[in-house]
Computed example of a mutant assay.
Amino acid sequence: MDIGQSIRKARKAKGWTLEELSHRVETDTGNLSRLERGKQFASKELLSRIMVVLGIELSQIQDAGMSNVQMALQPSRAPKEYPLISWVIAGGWAESSDNFHPGDAEEWLPSTENAGDHGFWLDVRGDSMTCNGNPSFPEGSRILVQPEADVISGKYYVVKLLDSGESTFKQYIEDAGLKYLRPLNPNYRTIQINGNCQFIGRVIDTKMTGL
């Protein structure tokens, strides 16, 4: 049994769909499907998250003839630096990113996540994405945004509201054919959307500040 089959067996044992597991380990269903079919290797970080969520022990994989699993993993990506920009700039990023120059940002922050050529960091404003659970994005924490990312229900996005011109950070939810931008803080209202917004990018990494 290879690693993909081991993951699929453990997922099925919990009664989870690919979508449920992808949400729990913060990847997309396509990645997991290819991994389970042996068409794609997992990074060390992703494999570790999958094993924790599914309750798979490394010894179980080794007992299944997978003692060389670490050798099959892709090497960890070297950190790449992305600019920390303002929300004003972020609001027009889709139109202006090609005109962005290194001197336009005072600070560049590293990440091992691949946010593409036009990735950028933002400081979280307010407490609408703060909660008692995980993840939580308190005010002042930083989020890495990947522009031109696929829009997937349950993931987190920076979105420009076309009616007001305001940019906001929320969780995107599809439910019963309707689409919403949901804050994690229950004291804020969920926003129903119907094409009156522009997805600037998906949040793929975060950093805490002031620790």
Results as ranks from 00 to 15, higher is better:
H101I: 15
G92W: 09
N196T: 00
R37Q: 13
K170E: 03
I61V: 13
Y172D: 02
I56Y: 07
N196A: 11
T130V: 00
G165C: 05
R8V: 05
S111Q: 13
N187F: 11
D175K: 12
I152C: 05
Y180G: 04
R202N: 09
L54D: 04
N114C: 03
D123R: 07
N187D: 15
W93L: 03
F120H: 01
G177M: 04
S97P: 02
A10P: 05
S43R: 05
I191C: 07
I193V: 13
A42C: 10
R77W: 03
K80V: 11
V159H: 02
N194F: 07
E113M: 13
F169M: 01
V25P: 00
D123W: 15
D205E: 12
S111V: 07
W93H: 02
V25H: 09
W87R: 09
G116S: 11
L122F: 07
E174C: 08
M66R: 08
S6D: 11
E57P: 04
L161D: 05
S22A: 13
A10T: 02
R202D: 03
G177I: 06
W108R: 12
L18P: 01
K12A: 14
S86H: 06
L178K: 15
Q60G: 10
L47R: 04
G91M: 04
R182F: 15
L58Y: 15
G201F: 10
W121H: 04
K155D: 11
G91V: 10
A90D: 01
I89M: 15
L58T: 15
G177H: 05
G177C: 03
M208L: 10
H101D: 11
G154N: 04
I143L: 05
Q40K: 10
R182N: 12
L73D: 01
E26M: 12
A94Y: 14
K207E: 13
S111R: 01
T209N: 09
G103A: 12
E174D: 08
E106V: 07
H23A: 10
A64I: 05
T130F: 12
T130C: 08
L58Q: 11
S167Y: 09
L47G: 09
D63G: 15
A94G: 07
